[in-house]
Structures are given as C-alpha cells and as structure tokens.
Design a protein around this nucleic acid. Sequence first.
DNA 1: ACAAAAGTGTTCAGCGTACACCCATGA
DNA 2: TCATGGGTGTACGCTGAACACTTTTGT
Lengths: 225, 225
Amino acid sequence: MYTYKYPHPAVTTDCVVFGFDGSNLNLLLIERGIEPFKGKWALPGGFMNMDETAEQGAMRELQEETSIKDIYIEQFHTFTSVKRDPRERVLTIAFLAFIRQEKYEVIAGDDAAKAQWFPIDQLPELAFDHKDIITMALDKLKWKITYEPIAFRLLNKTFTMTQVQTIYEVVLGQTFDRRNFHKKMTALGYIIPTEMQSRGSGRPGTLFTFDEDKYKEQIENKKVF
Amino acid sequence: MYTYKYPHPAVTTDCVVFGFDGSNLNLLLIERGIEPFKGKWALPGGFMNMDETAEQGAMRELQEETSIKDIYIEQFHTFTSVKRDPRERVLTIAFLAFIRQEKYEVIAGDDAAKAQWFPIDQLPELAFDHKDIITMALDKLKWKITYEPIAFRLLNKTFTMTQVQTIYEVVLGQTFDRRNFHKKMTALGYIIPTEMQSRGSGRPGTLFTFDEDKYKEQIENKKVF
DNA sequence: ACAAAAGTGTTCAGCGTACACCCATGA
DNA sequence: TCATGGGTGTACGCTGAACACTTTTGT
C-alpha cells in the first residue's frame, strides 16, 4: 500500500499506433483481457511506473501487449476527464506512432487477449474514452502530414511514389493529380530516387528513399515567414 | 491520508502565459512563497484536484496565484521526468495562454509572494524544470503564430497594423516589409478595418479588428493540400 | 499491339517579395 | 513646412493546379 497526504490520480499511457498496408490506414488495438471493459477493444497502454518517464512507460506497455518495440513515439495530449475510468481517477498521456506495418509482427501479451490491426474506418466499439483519443490523434495526423514528412514512417525504406500518394489520399480524404504530386515530392529535395522495380503489369516505378539528413538540413535553413 | 494499492504520482498544472505590452513579448511569473524553491520564480500552477480536469485546475491555480481569470488556455505538453520535483514523483501538465496584458491586473495571491511580467529575453532563474517548459512553449508559439491567428489574442479588440507586425517580428525574430505585411494581413479576409485613430506624430493609422467568425468560416472551407 | 502504370513538360493564375510614391497628422 | 508614420501600387519570380504526351513493362 502507498500512502499520500493528498489524493493522487493514477496515470496511464496509451499509444495510437498507425500502420499502412499498401492501401489502407490501420490502427493497432488490443482486446482487453481484464476488467474493466474486459473483452472490449482498446488502445495498447497501461499504468506508468514511478521510475520511468511517460515515454518509457508507453513503450514498455506497447511491447508487453503487442510485442512491438523500438519505435518512435510522440506525446500529443493528456486526457483528464474526471470520470473517464470507472475504478478511480485516472488520467492518460496519449502518444502517436507511425510504423511500417509489415515490418513488425503483432503478438498479443500481458493483459491483452488479442492484438490486431483495424482499418481506420472500421473500428470496433472501444473501451474508456479511447474513441475520443483516436479522433484527436486523427486530427493531429492530418495536421502533421501536411507539414512534416511522417508518411515515410509508414513506408518501407524504399517505396514508390504511388504508395506515398496513397497515404496522403487516405489520410486527407482527397485525391491528387499524379503528375503534380510527383513533381512536388521530388522538388522537396529529400525524396531520393534509387533503383527500379517491376511488379506486375505496367511500367516499373522508381523506388525512392527518404533522406532524413537532407530533410533536417532544410528545416535548419528554412525561413519561417 | 490517502492510500492506494499501487504508487501514484502527484500531478500539477503550469501555465505559460504570454503577454504583449506594445513592444515586448512578456511572460507572467510568480515568486514562490513556499518550499521547495522558495524565493525562486516559477510558472503559475499547482496541484490538480481530484474533482477537476487539468484545464480547470490550471485556471483555478492561475486565478489563485495571479488573479487572472476567464482566459483561453490550451494544453501543449506533459512533463514527466522522474526527478523534476525534489519532494516526490510529480508530473505537470503544461498550458499555453495569450492575453491582452493591459486588460488584466496582476495581483499575487495564495502561494505566490509576487506575480509579475518579465520580458521573454530577461527571465530570472527558474524553479523546477520550468526553463524547459518555457523553451518548449516558445517553440510552440513560433509554430502556432505562423499557422494560426493567435497574435490577436495578445492585442486589444482594435489594433493597428504596426502592432500586429511588431508581435510577429518579436516572436519570430525577424523583420518584415511594412507594405507587404499590410497587404498580406488584409488579404486574409478576417482582419477588418474600423475607424481611425490619432496618437502622436505621423498619419493616424486605421484600427482593425479580428473577425473570429470570418476566420472560422475560412478554415471550414480551406483545402488542405 | 494493347492495356496498365509511370516518367516528363507546358501553360496559366495566384502569391510572396522587392521596391516607390503619396497622404495625413503633430510640432 | 517638415518630420513621422501609414496607406496604396507595380513588376517580377516562384509555386501550385490543370492538363497531354511519351515510355516501359506484362500479356
């Protein structure tokens, strides 16, 4: 038992992990193996330990529940509604992640009965206020993708221009002219062409890479206004 | 006394309140009246209650310590370093605010010995990790001001174009061409001219207002890409 | 040779930038 | 009438949007 002079809330972390399978934007969810909301789907996450930061806690829970580790996560909002957990006062620090879906095998563990990907437009009923968290994460994703090169976190090291375009179209819910999109992306300067690839019918597309160093150089030197 | 089966962190809120006095960007700080860091300057904030959200707690603490109330605040990051408070594990949810400095009288209260504005480039030594919080708040401010009309929160209902430009120049640390700046702002469509004003030498400037409704209309209809 | 997918080019309009001139006030 | 600060206009270059043609593969 732990005793405090004043009441303290419990603190959890939750990860909104986005994945891309070539045509759909997906979200990684776990089925809860324990109460409350046992049997309901939820974001991977759990209680933070006293000797770890929120980031560390989020990554630990993610690994325990889905076996995914060594990914980049980014804090985006802390949810503090008073009655968001039926047990006691719990606030949750929510994180965003974008991963190469096929690179990681998802294996349920710990308190998670199952762990699986869901298309973003076919989510099951969710535990707690996780629906709200996902809604805000999606808004954040739309905002971020227009200003930062996060699409490449969802893709393999090499990718075709069509794949990039598909992500932008799926995330933003609109279509773009293939030729202008191509021009705009290559004009950015940090999308580097590599070899060719043939896969099925049609002319084989160039494979591109995202050059992180070149990107960082640019944001150093850019004018804000 | 309050006991829990598992250890819980304490949770505080902190407000980074920006103000503008016509030429300088200022930050509202309080001098701590109690330990730890008694006598040091700090962001207004304090422990969250169990029956209030983080937003409510932040606004309550802000009012208690500085008498400022009824302002718009916006959560921007939660700081969770393990040893950021010498007493126990404390994490803090940080908020951003932009106010019309002259509209509010600052009166120290509660645990605050003093409360006063500091120019952003002349901050005193700060308690806890508040320097880091302010650094991140400034980055956020620079980012936000280029994409959202937050400058108008810092100004009176009516303002001259020069005042707006000064804010942009101070925040972003660069100068702009007066004529282009004027054109760009009026072209936005939601900066509405009202009457004239004469104040000292030189041609009197038009007073403008920020039309929030027109702005909201625009972001509804804008194309993202 | 034909369909499918991908690379490249042109035109035009709109926006940002650099820069100059005129106007209204106080002293 | 002069200094000071504020409004307005023009020219040019770059970028985004609309749109067509050519190239390379599989069948």
